[in-house]
Amino acid sequence: MTRIALKVNGQAVERDVAPRRNLVDFLRDELNLTGTNVGCEHGVCGACTLEIDGAPARSCIAFAVACDGASVRTIEGFDDDPVMIELRAAFNAEHALQCGYCTPGMLVTARDIVTRLPDADEARIREELSGNLCRCTGYVGIVRAIVSVMAARKSSGGGR
């Protein structure tokens, strides 16, 4: 066991972890933050995407022990985030989720696209989404939702 200290959704957390404990299992099983889902454990499906130090990362192939000192933000930490509020409204309006299992990771990636690439066109949005698999929606609503949030932010002068 190794002692780690990190921030999770703004809260300081200190725990002993087995070095092999991956970040998502640590969050789910030890911190009871079950919003981040596990889909493949090899970094392909994107269900477990969350933010480490402000950037999207795969929590299934990150070890908790290697996140000592880091700041981690899970889907539960985005409740009041203004961009996420817009994205949630758009995902709901565009039917961008069905079973919801990929959705937390999808939203974290969507938020990254909206904030990092405010001028991205649809083709680029699709490319940026390629690391998040959804088996339900065919991505139609997801792409539409992201496009609509980006358009709304542009027309309101936000998003910069």
Partner: peptide, 9 residues
């Protein structure tokens, strides 16, 4: 290379 979430790490 891979996906953005992978490229970040």
């Amino acid at each position: 290379i891979a996906y953005r979430a992978v490229r970040n790490r």
